[in-house]
Simulated scan of single mutants.
Amino acid sequence: MSGRAGQPPRHWYEGARVPLYAQALSAVYGAVAGLRRGLYRRRLLRARHAGRPVVVVGNLVAGGSGKTPLTIALVERLRAAGWTPGIASRGYGRADAGTPRWVDAGTDPALGGDEPVLLAARTGVRVRVDRDRVAAARALVAEGCDVVVCDDGLQHYRLARDLEIEVIDGRRRYGNRRLLPAGPLREPPARGGDCDFRVLNVGTDTDLAAGFGEWPMWFEPGPARPMAGGRPLPLSAFAGQRVHAVAGIGDPERFFAMLRGHGIAVVPHAFGDHHRYVAEDLRFGSDLPVLLTEKDAVKCRAFANDRYFSVGIDARLPEAFWIALLDRLGPRSSATA
C-alpha cells in the first residue's frame, strides 16, 4: 500500500497528539476565519448575486466527504424537475489555476481539475472553473443556466447563495473537532447549523445512522468500465479475485471497503486527494486487474490499458430529501421571471 503522502495528519482523525505549532496556528486561523465570517454577516463585506438561484454543496472539513456524488445527484434531480443547472467549481489542483475555463468530458484534468472533468462527464451540463466563484456563476447564467450548483464553496462567502448543503463524512465526521491545522475543520461545527440541509455520507456502511437534522446518503456502485474500451462488467465478475485497487480521494478506505463488500480481494493503493498520476504510479509488478475510482480514472486515461477499470458510484438519498429541497428552492418560474 502506498504511503501516507497526501493523506490527513494522524492527529486529525487517529487520536495522535496535536503538535504545539499546530495548536498555535489553529488559534490564528480561527481568529482570521471568524473575523471574515463576521464581516460578511454584518454586511461590511458584500456578497454578490449571480442573478439566478445558487445551491452550494460543501463541507466544514478539509478533504473529501462525498460532495461530488451528491453534486451529480443534485444536478440530475434538478434537471428532472425542469431546471437547467450549471456547475461552478474552483477546480482545485489545476495547473493554470488563475485561468477561468469551461470544462467538458474531454478536458485534460491537469487544466480543468479532476472533479470538474468527472462532473462534466457524468452530468453533461455546463461546468465552469474559476477561483472567482461569482464570475463562474455569472458565466453559467449568461450561458442559459437558471440554477447554479457550486461544488464546494461553503466558505466562499462572496458568492450569495439561496441554499447550503453540508456534507458530513459519516465515519470520520469532524475528527478531533479542531480548526486547521490542529484539526480538519475549516470552520467550527456550529457552522453546520446555519446550513439548510445536512447530509450524512454513510457510503455503504449499514451500521452508520444519521442523527437529528441529518439526511442519510448512501452509495450504489456501478459496473467496472474498461478504460481501454469494451463491455462494462459487474463487480461480481471480480469476486474471489485479487485486484489492485487505486484511490486518491479523501478517504480511500471507503473505496477499498466497498470492493471487499463484493467479495473482491483488494490489494490497496492509496494516494493523496487530487494526486496527479503518471504511468509509473500504477506499475505494481503484477498483471492483476486495476480498479480505480472514477475521479482517479479521468487522470489515467492517457496510459490505461485493458487491465484498467473505472468504478463509479451513484448517490442515493430519501425521496423526502428531494421533496424538501425542491420546495425550499421554490418554483422555477419565480427564478426566470
Results as ranks from 00 to 15, higher is better:
2 S>Q: 13
7 Q>R: 15
8 P>Q: 05
9 P>A: 09
10 R>N: 13
12 W>P: 07
28 V>L: 14
28 V>P: 01
31 A>E: 00
31 A>M: 06
32 V>E: 05
32 V>K: 12
38 G>E: 05
39 L>P: 13
42 R>G: 08
45 L>D: 05
45 L>I: 00
45 L>P: 03
49 H>A: 15
49 H>D: 06
59 N>D: 12
63 G>C: 03
68 T>D: 12
74 L>H: 08
75 V>F: 04
79 R>Y: 04
79 R>V: 05
81 A>C: 05
82 G>A: 10
84 T>Q: 13
85 P>W: 09
88 A>P: 00
89 S>K: 00
90 R>T: 13
90 R>H: 12
91 G>T: 11
93 G>L: 04
93 G>D: 11
95 A>L: 12
103 V>P: 06
103 V>R: 03
105 A>S: 08
106 G>V: 09
106 G>F: 07
106 G>L: 10
107 T>H: 12
111 L>Y: 11
114 D>L: 03
116 P>T: 09
117 V>K: 05
117 V>I: 09
118 L>K: 01
121 A>T: 01
121 A>F: 05
122 R>C: 04
122 R>E: 15
123 T>R: 06
125 V>H: 13
134 V>W: 03
135 A>W: 13
137 A>M: 05
144 G>N: 02
145 C>W: 10
146 D>Y: 02
147 V>N: 06
149 V>E: 02
158 R>E: 11
161 R>N: 04
162 D>R: 15
163 L>Q: 04
164 E>F: 12
165 I>V: 15
166 E>M: 14
166 E>V: 15
166 E>R: 09
168 I>Y: 01
171 R>K: 14
173 R>Q: 15
174 Y>N: 10
174 Y>F: 15
175 G>C: 09
175 G>D: 12
177 R>A: 15
180 L>G: 01
182 A>N: 11
186 R>P: 12
186 R>E: 11
187 E>M: 09
187 E>S: 09
188 P>Y: 02
188 P>W: 02
189 P>W: 11
189 P>H: 07
190 A>T: 12
191 R>L: 08
195 C>G: 07
198 R>A: 06
201 N>I: 04
204 T>C: 15
205 D>H: 13
207 D>N: 12
209 A>K: 15
218 W>P: 01
218 W>Q: 08
225 R>S: 14
232 P>Q: 11
234 P>S: 10
234 P>F: 07
237 A>F: 13
239 A>T: 08
239 A>K: 04
243 V>P: 09
245 A>P: 04
246 V>A: 03
247 A>I: 05
248 G>M: 02
249 I>N: 04
250 G>L: 03
251 D>I: 00
255 F>G: 04
260 R>W: 01
260 R>G: 06
260 R>V: 00
262 H>I: 03
263 G>A: 11
263 G>C: 10
268 P>W: 07
271 F>H: 08
271 F>V: 00
275 H>K: 12
277 Y>A: 00
280 E>M: 03
284 F>Y: 09
285 G>L: 06
286 S>K: 05
286 S>N: 15
287 D>Y: 01
288 L>N: 04
289 P>A: 05
292 L>S: 03
296 D>R: 14
300 C>W: 06
306 D>G: 06
307 R>C: 04
310 S>Q: 13
313 I>W: 06
314 D>V: 14
315 A>K: 05
317 L>W: 00
322 W>D: 05
324 A>R: 02
325 L>Q: 03
328 R>D: 00
334 S>C: 05
335 A>W: 15
